[in-house]
Write a protein that binds this DNA or RNA. Structure first.
Lengths: 187, 187
DNA sequence: CTTCAATCTTAACACTGTAAAGATTTTATG
DNA sequence: CATAAAATCTTTACAGTGTTAAGATTGAAG
């Protein structure tokens, strides 16, 4: 019902696509509902038939980008699950994704909608972290790390990878070396 | 000349102060030049006598907050320079600062004005990183770390601390443990 | 065919940043 | 001191923003 409207084709999906394209071009700062509507050749209030407000559109765009992100992450460790280098490959893929799409970091984390509870293993709604965690745990087990060190090591690795992505895109950090060497020293 | 105007007292400084207060209250998203002007009981175009545009005001606010940030960081290692725990204290202070001011992370790194070149030791314009680097190097030297490992270890530590601050404030990560335990496992 | 709900447009409102022109006051100049 | 110049602030105006309300158009259901 929401998927196949009548008049314009399927405006909802087209708005999401055009919105993401606009993010990639100019970033979140100059994002505008009216620009997206114009890009779809539609009046500037038409989006309100599909989204309650601009935040809902951005949220839908975010889900779409996150899925794309997850596909990249999954394929980076495909066939190597449980191997020693899996977590290293995953970390590099995490960083590479944001290097390839410089606007996505600011965009994805612009809203604090994401919540990750590190104290509770079953309560995160951020899929990339869930994948990162399971991959890390497999590696910890394979190297015989004591269980009580799992949580500390996981957070250290995760914040380092996420921090590098933040520094490279949100901030203007430049580094010509290989990032994998950086977080590999901790494995 | 810019410091002591005639009419309103010193509007420039008052705009910066009111702006920072507004950031602390509502965050960067709902920040507005006109609100700041109104808070200073002045017409909404008066700021243009002191700042070329809204970005220049925000930049001035950012410098002010960064100075405040630096004071906190410096006092956290005062008298303990060169000690083994200095870098740990500094990292914790770095994180605590953004916990105490949840809006500052998004605010400080909203503009990509900051540039840090990890390949060139003398070309960063982000004072907190300079302090972090010298403190880390002192520690590396004191534990007899080989020189060629300095750069890797520095980046690993720095991105981890910065990443934790990002996760805690920009994103909705919750963790009841002690963060110092996390990045202490790497020293 | 008629009814109804979903979708889209037009019009309007409050808010935003910014530019232009003019008024006011401090500072500099003769 | 008087006058000119510069700095500061106000008023007015304009284009752009998100959002709401009312009405038009169209697809599907009865």
């Amino acid at each position: 019902m929401k998927e196949k409207p009548y008049h314009h084709g399927d405006l909802r999906n087209q708005l999401i696509e055009a919105g993401i394209q606009l993010i990639n071009k100019d970033g979140i700062k100059s994002f505008s509902l009216r620009k997206v509507a114009a890009e779809c050749s539609v009046s500037h209030t038409a989006p309100y038939s599909h989204f309650k407000n601009i935040d809902e559109l951005i949220a839908a765009m975010g889900e779409h980008v996150t899925e794309q992100f997850m596909d990249t992450l999954r394929s980076s460790v495909q066939g190597k699950e449980g191997s020693h280098e899996a977590i290293s490959l995953l970390g590099q893929a995490y960083i590479d994704f944001f290097i390839a799409h410089p606007q996505y970091f600011q965009f994805l984390f612009y809203h604090s909608g994401i919540t990750i509870d590190l104290d509770n293993y079953n309560s995160d709604n951020y899929p990339p972290f869930a994948l990162f965690r399971t991959t890390a745990y497999q590696m910890f087990r394979s190297i015989g790390l004591p269980d009580e060190e799992y949580s500390h090591k996981l957070i250290a690795l995760w914040s380092m990878v996420h921090g590098i992505a933040s520094l490279l895109t949100n901030n203007g950090v430049r580094y010509s070396g290989n990032w994998r060497d950086i977080f590999a020293i901790k494995l």
